[in-house]
Design a binder for these strands. Sequence first.
DNA 1: ACCATATATGCTCTACATGAGCATTAATAG
DNA 2: CTATTAATGCTCATGTAGAGCATATATGGT
Lengths: 338, 338
Amino acid sequence: MTKDTSLPVPIIIGLNAVIAIVDDGTPKTLCIRDTDDQFSLPYGPFDPIHHRTFEIGLKDWVQRQTQVRLGFIEQLYTFGDQGRAAPRALIEGGTANGRIVSVGYLALADRPAKTKSDNASWRHWYEFFPWEDWRNGSPALIADIILPNLIAWAEHGETETEKLDRKDRIALAFGMQEIGWEEERLLDRYELMYEAGLVEEAWRDRADGGSPSPYADPKVRRLLGKPMASDHRRILATAIGRLRGKLKYRAVVFELMPKEFTLLALQRVVEAIVGFKLHKQNFRRSVEGSKLVERTSKTVQQPSGRPAALFSVYDETGVDRAARGLAIPRLRQSPGRR
Amino acid sequence: MTKDTSLPVPIIIGLNAVIAIVDDGTPKTLCIRDTDDQFSLPYGPFDPIHHRTFEIGLKDWVQRQTQVRLGFIEQLYTFGDQGRAAPRALIEGGTANGRIVSVGYLALADRPAKTKSDNASWRHWYEFFPWEDWRNGSPALIADIILPNLIAWAEHGETETEKLDRKDRIALAFGMQEIGWEEERLLDRYELMYEAGLVEEAWRDRADGGSPSPYADPKVRRLLGKPMASDHRRILATAIGRLRGKLKYRAVVFELMPKEFTLLALQRVVEAIVGFKLHKQNFRRSVEGSKLVERTSKTVQQPSGRPAALFSVYDETGVDRAARGLAIPRLRQSPGRR
DNA sequence: ACCATATATGCTCTACATGAGCATTAATAG
DNA sequence: CTATTAATGCTCATGTAGAGCATATATGGT
């Protein structure tokens, strides 16, 4: 083995948390409002002295900062790219000459906890990804703005191969192929838009580098979701994409539910996450058949209509490691996959 | 936000690569033989000065060390636990007073490249996880050794709840529930065995800490796979588990195949990875119907029998981002899932 | 009490994917 | 020409997912 003997540059590990809840049909994540009035995810440096593991560190400062107690936690990805803007607080801390590596985490909570500080607030996911919410049909944004701009970007490829490759990626990410829209490709879509210069962060990050990509004008960028500090929007995209995928094979939804719930409430939570509506009767069929929930004897009266039965999670303990997730019975109309 | 102003402890990021190939039905990974004659994964420190991203760093030193050119690469997980043994080379490098965080990567190659150094070699995966190869039926090891020892460990739980919880995890990980054996839960199984003190590393790592778990005797541990340096076996477990899962929804297998191949060869590669045999005709049916491969006009003669048609990947470029993986048509007998 | 309306809940129909295994084809070795 | 071996083709049974009709149980208005 060739031993690398160069002295290491100081490295700082930042922990970033996407803390997700679904509040009455609205999927939200905890955000901090930066000093420049920009949103960022809750984050903090990993302190190797006081914390034996990342998760302990994360839980610790999240609790201190926001009073939110984290239940389910999952590591997402570790971002180590150079050129990624350093969170301001860390720079001010005087350690900006090191390299910052951020480890993203996804955490789920079952209701919006009070937040200690005024600049912390629960924000609607789709403020940052307006093209990801198909619950009221295909967002006009995609056909009207995103696709035309992406295609234009693809046409600016250097070589013929690059152009084709870009078009291919666009088609796949935005569901123009036989497979249709795949909700879990959220990150692919965001990264494509970043590369094409359609989101604000791309513009901001490349201010120094300079690249020949045909940047969309500010008006367009402003329509394509609110920017976030550093690469937090990418981390949020990773989190949502992961959660969307995970729903299908792990019973994580229940981490977002109260003790007792109606099946429609459960459905609304799933819909909020995946971003499109489900077939009600088929959803019920699969949930009831899944052995993941148990019908209680209680019912709740809706504003009108037949009262709904309340359900509870069948086996409290092993839910998140349960072998199967819930079925996602699509409607062919809207996001018609396959 | 409460600002954490304590000075950071030096952190070193180590990059670890699981470089996988399948060589004539044998799944292998590149290993380095340590100075204490122990196996370790290829690893190296991440050098923030010379490398803009982790992946660039990884590719760079893997190529320098082993002459293997990495194609497909995927980040697995970032391990930051204290108490994880530091790779000897890093300690010797004089930086052992810092905290080592390792980022694991999975890389796929299509054939065993020559390795530059003598202490690098391609090792059979299942040397490290002998209970994971079900291709010749359910390994006796599981029923004879693993389960009895795990159950014993479960019985040693402090509280009633803990005992039940452990039994639950065992049942799930080892497929004792209705769902059956899930090949992608390899990491769960390894971690369970680690916790229970059944694998060598658990014994080694806890030498200082000391824990009340009922450690299996050395004879047992020696049967349960070869140990690896640091937590490399955990990283390898993560890699195999991830690859096993990924096969089903991404067309990554083709990264492991030569340009042209027979369907049986493809099947053998899949079988090597998932660790059990597939139904031949059904595998063919799904592969041919997948639009992922293309029949060439060529055939190859086997030692006996009808010659097999050669196939090639349909769309060279977008394979790894293709929307669907291959079907894994199980045989109900052996690892009968569901 | 009766009706319109709004949900919740039950049930059926169809298309298609998946697990199994029989049948046929095309080679080789005697 | 026959036995053997592996590749390839095809059919059958079962289960699941997408659709949508039908029924049940509330509320509010008349």
